[in-house]
């Protein structure tokens, strides 16, 4: 990474930090000012995390290769029942097992 790229990263982090702080103070400001977010905008905003995160999951599953897809499938099945730390551990174990046996 050259220095201009690195400066850009620092700015991204700073902007993200400000944005995060705004979410943490926003409700307080809103409740003291008594303003509401339009319901359709709230519905759209509510969907943003699942929408963005899905784009980081689905392509990895389809284009990541057999070992990654199999590990994700295993993690998905256990993920409906266990905490995310267990999901990570079991998914990691699955991919390492496949890689070890296919060497």
């Amino acid at each position: 990474m050259d220095s201009s790229e690195h400066m850009q990263l620092i700015y991204i982090i700073l902007a993200a930090a400000v944005a995060t702080f705004l979410t943490r103070i926003g409700g307080y400001v809103m409740i003291t000012q008594m303003k509401r977010i339009p319901p359709r905008m709230e519905a759209a905003l509510n969907s943003v995390p699942a929408a963005v995160l899905s784009t980081l999951v689905a392509p990895a599953f389809v284009y990541g290769g057999f070992d990654v897809a199999a590990a994700m499938l295993v993690a998905f099945v256990v993920g409906l029942r266990v905490s995310s730390l267990w999901m990570l551990a079991i998914g990691w174990l699955a991919v390492m097992t496949i890689r070890y046996w296919s060497l």
Partner: peptide, 17 residues
Amino acid sequence: IVLSIFAVNFRHILYSA
């Protein structure tokens, strides 16, 4: 990137309220 981080953290608005 910034918008996504904002969106993932958006739930905090409910906490601070």
